[in-house]
Design a binder for these strands. Sequence first.
DNA 1: TCATATTGTCAAGTTTATTTTACATTTTGC
DNA 2: GCAAAATGTAAAATAAACTTGACAATATGA
Lengths: 63, 63
Amino acid sequence: MKNLRLKSARAAKDMSQEQLAGLCNVSRQTINAIEKGDYNPSIKLCIAICKALGRTLDELFWE
Amino acid sequence: MKNLRLKSARAAKDMSQEQLAGLCNVSRQTINAIEKGDYNPSIKLCIAICKALGRTLDELFWE
DNA sequence: TCATATTGTCAAGTTTATTTTACATTTTGC
DNA sequence: GCAAAATGTAAAATAAACTTGACAATATGA
């Protein structure tokens, strides 16, 4: 299941996958895989993503 | 960093670590380690825990 | 006090997230 | 249409989550 809320929140900040990855200290491929729904990130990474995008866990990852 | 909100939410439901583990399909040791802060669970597991305890991600895992 | 349930912890093994490198495809701006 | 940036994807290696089994320590209740 793709994470379109994440993709959209990133677009809203006009941020590339690579920029977001840099802010979160992970690789670009990791961000790509998460948006694509390929795997299941750690809560720590989810929190880092949320902070970089100014969102909360519930907004980006709650179903 | 211990997760006391999780421990407390579990206590509020009068649920043992083993019962919670059962509902989340993980081992008791995994729940123990998460409460103790020993590791960094996946978002999928966090969501399962939240659902079992009737809480949201922000309530149990947001900082 | 005694028995039992719950929790803490450890070691060894398996699975899976994440990295690195690399290349192909698509999008964007000029 | 061209060049550059952004995205999609894949294989091999590494780190860390998670399991299983087992035992000690602590709490709970009769």
